[in-house]
Amino acid sequence: MTDFNENLHIEKKASGQADINSVPFTEVEQPGPASLAQQAKGFWVTFSTMFKKNQTVQYPDVKAPTAPRFHGRHQLNRHPDGLEKCIGCELCAWACPADAILVEGGNNTPGNQMSPGERHGAVYQINYLRCIFCGLCVEACPTRALTMTNQPAHLL
């Protein structure tokens, strides 16, 4: 058996250094049990809460509006002339911490001009079972092709 503590060197503190023993002693006043009236107050809180309007949103039946900057479903945008903004650079796929995005780029040919420039995204898939809605892909996109909508991504 090896004594592992042999290799363990704990330096002793210099005597002047502050440690827990240099903290002045303070008596901690502990409050005794609360009076009966105060305890009854707690019961009144729960009782009166029964008659308040409850906060539950009946989600599938009632859809509350999302927050203005809610990270919802992704959306691929187009230029005003109808050409795709995505150039198939795969920066979003590289930025994705959950490895949820698959992009395959393709060449623009004279008969098939999908986006301005030479390349376009031929395959663009986001796996919503992996996506964590962090928005790093949106930050990575150099052409603002990928953005997030305000709508919840309905997985079911």
Partner: peptide, 9 residues
């Protein structure tokens, strides 16, 4: 005696 660190009573 009272120690010189905080203790709960």
């Amino acid at each position: 005696e009272a120690p010189n660190f905080p203790v709960p009573s």
